[in-house]
């Protein structure tokens, strides 16, 4: 059950970070709706952020395993 809570916490944190960063990147002047360009930007930003998160995850885990370095 803890593992499941961990997975949920992880997804929640990811949603929050993506929302915050993509809102800043894509909705610079918030208007009365999300327009088509902002929506498209958010979708691209979402995939791009996931890409970055994967890069960082793999690199960090590799580094921990190589060096038993623990931040």
């Amino acid at each position: 059950q803890i593992s499941q809570e961990l997975a949920i916490a992880n997804a929640t944190e990811l949603v929050q970070k993506i929302t915050e960063n993509c809102f800043q990147n894509c909705v610079k002047n918030p208007g009365s709706t999300i327009d088509a360009a902002q929506k498209k930007c958010t979708e691209q930003c979402f995939e791009k952020y996931m890409h970055g998160w994967n890069l960082v995850s793999r690199a960090y885990i590799t580094r921990i395993q190589q060096s038993k370095y623990d931040i």
Binding site: V15, T19, C22, F23, V27, P30, Q38, E43, F46
Partner: peptide, 21 residues
């Protein structure tokens, strides 16, 4: 207006991100 729109569009973005994930 900016404060209100900022909140509403942030929540819209949050919903979009949840759907995408």
């Amino acid at each position: 207006n900016c404060m209100t729109n900022c909140l509403q569009r942030f929540l819209d973005t949050n919903i979009n991100v949840v759907k995408l994930i």
